[in-house]
Design a protein around this nucleic acid. Structure first.
Lengths: 138, 138
DNA sequence: AATGTTAGTCTCAAAATGAGAGCAGGGCTA
DNA sequence: TAGCCCTGCTCTCATTTTGAGACTAACATT
């Protein structure tokens, strides 16, 4: 109630109205549909890497050590499908594949970056909150 | 390479250095640890709702029609644990429980909102990109 | 000839999620 | 007084998603 999230009543109404058609239905909201892919387990991490510079498949795998090849392939394909990532195959032997951000990917990442910045600035507070919660519930 | 994601080489280096200790290790990066919860399947949707005004459990369930009670409970508890959401029980009969954003939750949501705004403005482009990809791969 | 490299795919196990019943403790209606 | 509804959950079991690791093909290196 302190005004910091000012105009969000309106905002949520807008999202609602973009849903299936029934008033108040968030189930088929297109905003939700778009962010779902960006918020998937590995997407933001790969986007962070690709915002730095283009990477090859194997480089990404080494950079994000706990991703499986399966999910790396799948997440990259999803990001490519949504238009954030460009995939280019070089006909070397063995072939190499380079992934890079598109203009749209960079545009989206500019917005994502705000939240990453917040997390960077506030992860200690979150850690503290978690510790307090865990201590209180015992 | 057009400079729009300017200082992100540096940024990623910072995230890397905050990892386990080995250079270039993103596995235990605290930023990643924090955003993971915000990016979970239902969190952003509930945050959007709670940014509008406090809601009761049953209200949230009706507002987000395709969430299961199980995941609603669990996601709310995670958000509470991380310090974004306040849970208050009113001793009515039957008891009612109200969820609201904390100051930290509002602060975080201000950053998240940038991305939601981008998705709102660009979901048509994403839809187009998907259609093009799906048509090309057949 | 043996081994390593590339970017994947395939299979099977493990983890996360969904669907739906159950619960406690009252208030309503009949 | 019996029966049903309301609340905010938890529990169980089925389905979906993700992870771990083997396998591929064609070449380079040792």
């Amino acid at each position: 109630m302190d005004g910091r999230v000012s105009n969000f009543r309106t905002q949520l109404e807008v999202y609602r109205s973009k849903g299936g058609g029934e008033a108040g239905d968030l189930a088929n909201c297109p905003v939700r549909n778009v962010v779902q892919n960006i918020f998937s387990k590995w997407a933001s991490l790969l986007l962070m890497a690709l915002a730095e510079r283009p990477y090859r498949f194997g480089e990404l795998r080494r950079l994000v050590p706990d991703i499986s090849q399966r999910m790396l392939t799948q997440t990259l394909r999803d990001l490519q499908r949504d238009g954030y990532v460009h995939r280019e195959v070089f006909p070397t032997k063995p072939p190499s594949v380079e992934y890079s951000l598109t203009d749209m990917g960079r545009s989206m990442f500019d917005s994502l970056q705000h939240l990453l910045g917040w997390a960077d600035a506030n992860f200690e507070k979150v850690r503290t909150a978690r510790a307090r919660f865990d201590a209180a519930e015992g």
